[in-house]
Design a protein around this nucleic acid. Structure first.
Lengths: 258, 258
DNA sequence: CGTTCGATTGAGGAAGATCAATTAATGTGG
DNA sequence: CCACATTAATTGATCTTCCTCAATCGAACG
């Protein structure tokens, strides 16, 4: 297990947990409608160039000159970071309505690769065009900042998962996140296809593919998920809340039977 | 060790390493001058409200209503994320010139705590004021976007460190990052004070305080760092490059002596 | 129909967590 | 300024989790 018992060491200066209502403010109240509206607005105001992509297509690559941001209209992407010494790390997953390319603004070069994991459509928006349009249309700027802010907040949640959850819980939390991302976009969440290999999931979560496989088997044994007859890549999640409960069970060390 | 050998599994679609010059584009070419200029510009254009802080002061807290961004003029902050079930995670460290509060834009509430680790001064800039000023002053908008982009890119690097480096290397990489942050701000890097306890460092890096302590002892044994006579919180780093070399040594499993 | 790639599962080992004891720094009241 | 209490850091011994290595099985594909 990881360093779960460090709460006291760090919370020296923070307020008692009760005072902040158990971080319930983190629940995302965004409706599926919102994403559709956002896409419509971007489409109407910017008439972005559309591009159909297929699995494996690379939209941009680390080191390439930055110039345009992308919006994902459909499909599914992974964002891969690469270190100078050749380590590779999946650092993000992108769904419909998500933006791609923010990392390029600071240095004028993209710092990651954006790779399609499925057939889909991305909209290309030159950064300069976007900024110009924002001058007339303040709501566009709000949109942009909210998207960047959301990405920052989510990256921090990812770091927390990797640092504080044991392997089984991390996999469960990953599935929960995926299901909620789908739900949030109005898609069915009780049955979907993982478009990543165990190796990719493991890389994203900081564990080996074998550990991912074992965790999934355990989740299936515990009836928290079920594999579709179609293959082990299709997952049934009858109850998303059961995934959260599983995470909590992993965190409670002893079954507290006294 | 962690999942270091996953390169093949993920790199299926990416170009050969040679094609991108070993990600050398990640080197930060920013000068100390740049940060001072940025601060001056913000000061001149926005006349931000200044506030002196001391160790332990909380600038904002997760759940609080968002309204203002902060710029750190001096001192040192940690950003702490808290999950609904009470886990706490240090997700970021902030130095002079860094912005605080981006995570609040998306939901209208901050999603983390910002806690001072030293005496310092922050400048408060109401978000609305900033946006209004950006209308007249496009360079201000550029500044803002670059700062957000930088934060996104750095968060991804953090995730990669946690996911791909063994504990010793992670501590070394942490010290390297700290030293470079200081160098980048024109401060001396050969000798500085860690303003965090081992528990806080461990939490940030996803390991226990004991592991941090052992890693530091090993770094000292290997002469990569030295402890100041003043106490174990003061570190001497004669050569920052030696830290990078140490990280590489941790990644090379066998000494390749054949 | 064989080849290849992905997934599963088991056995053994290693990195790091946990538990515990000791020492060093920091602070407090007399 | 000193005895004392408190917190932080170090180090060792043991144990757990997860990684590594390896074999098997299933699915997809040419």
């Amino acid at each position: 297990m990881l360093n779960i018992a460090t709460t006291t060491a760090v919370s020296k200066f923070s307020c008692p947990p009760a005072a902040r209502a158990a971080a319930a403010f983190k629940t995302d109240a965004d409706s599926p409608r919102h994403i559709a509206d956002t896409l419509k607005m971007l489409n109407d105001l910017l008439a972005p160039q559309r591009r159909v992509v297929h699995t494996g297509d690379v939209i941009y690559q680390g080191g390439e000159r930055f110039g345009t941001l992308y919006i994902l209209n459909s499909g599914f992407f992974k964002i891969v970071n690469q270190s100078a010494d050749g380590r590779e790390q999946v650092v993000g997953l992108k769904f419909r309505g998500d933006w791609l390319g923010f990392d390029g603004i600071a240095r004028g070069r993209y710092s990651c690769d954006a790779i399609a994991m499925d057939t889909g459509e991305v909209w290309a928006i030159p950064y300069a065009t976007l900024i110009a349009a924002c001058a007339d249309q303040p709501s566009l700027l709000t949109l942009l900042h909210e998207a960047m802010s959301r990405e920052i907040a989510h990256d921090r949640d990812s770091l927390m998962s990797v640092c504080t959850l044991p392997a089984d819980a991390r996999v469960a939390d990953f599935l929960r996140y995926w299901a909620e991302s789908l739900a949030h976009r109005g898609m069915r969440t009780d049955r979907f296809t993982l478009r990543m290999t165990r190796a990719e999931i493991g890389n994203y979560l900081g564990m080996t593919l074998e550990t991912v496989s074992r965790a999934l088997s355990k989740l299936a044994r515990d009836k928290v998920i079920a594999f579709n007859e179609k293959g082990r890549r299709d997952v049934n999640i009858p109850d998303v809340a059961a995934l959260s409960a599983f995470v909590q069970r992993c965190l409670a060390p002893a079954p507290t039977l006294q």
